[in-house]
Amino acid sequence: MTQRARIRWNGNATLAAMRQGAVRGVRLGAEHLLEVSRQRVPIEEGTLERSGVVSVDEQSVTAAVSYDAPYAVRQHEELTYRHDHGRTAKYLEGPLHEEDGTITEIIAAQVRRSLR
């Protein structure tokens, strides 16, 4: 007895869906990082906190979190400045390292979701 099977390969569609999920995951991961870092941004009037943004390059599937107040870099790097309780220098670098597992899981979850 001969049996036949027909298989349809949807590789291109699968890769496109995975890419979409990865882009969505990178965006959500970056937004998560922005929210965590906003809780640590030195604050006096809130200008620095409000200047935080997420930008995503869908072509390279990368994201950036940045603060563009004129003094953002100085506040981030100057370890001798005194800040209110819970606010600190390295307000972006610290959360990036602490949240890397969570960010990775956010991205992975979106890729998995795109394959359903």
Rank of each mutant, 00 (worst) to 15 (best):
R50P: 06
R50S: 13
A16W: 08
L115D: 15
P95M: 03
V36C: 07
S66D: 06
V53M: 11
T47N: 05
A17S: 08
L79M: 06
E78M: 07
E45G: 08
E93P: 10
L34R: 03
V53R: 08
R40C: 03
V36I: 12
V56I: 13
S114I: 02
A13H: 06
G21M: 00
G94N: 11
R40A: 11
Q39C: 06
H76L: 06
I7G: 04
Y67V: 06
R116Q: 05
Y81N: 15
R19G: 03
L92E: 07
A64R: 02
G25D: 04
Y71T: 01
R24P: 08
E35P: 15
Q110L: 04
A13I: 03
T104S: 09
L96M: 12
E77V: 09
S37A: 12
P42Y: 02
E44D: 10
R74M: 09
Q39L: 04
H83I: 00
L115N: 02
A89M: 00
E44T: 04
Q20H: 14
G46H: 02
L96Q: 09
T62N: 01
G94M: 15
A30P: 14
G86M: 02
S55N: 14
I43R: 10
V56Y: 11
I107W: 05
R74T: 13
G25Y: 14
E44R: 05
A22G: 09
A64E: 07
V73M: 15
A72H: 02
E77H: 03
R24H: 07
E35K: 11
N10T: 07
S51I: 02
E58K: 11
S66G: 06
A17D: 05
E45M: 14
V53N: 13
V36M: 01
Q110P: 01
R6G: 10
T80V: 01
H85R: 15
R24M: 07
Q20Y: 14
Q59D: 01
Q3N: 09
D84A: 13
R8I: 13
T102N: 10
H76W: 02
D84F: 08
A63D: 00
R116F: 05
H83N: 03
S37K: 02
I43M: 13
S37N: 00
R4F: 09
Y67E: 01
L92K: 04
T104Y: 03
P70H: 01
R50T: 00
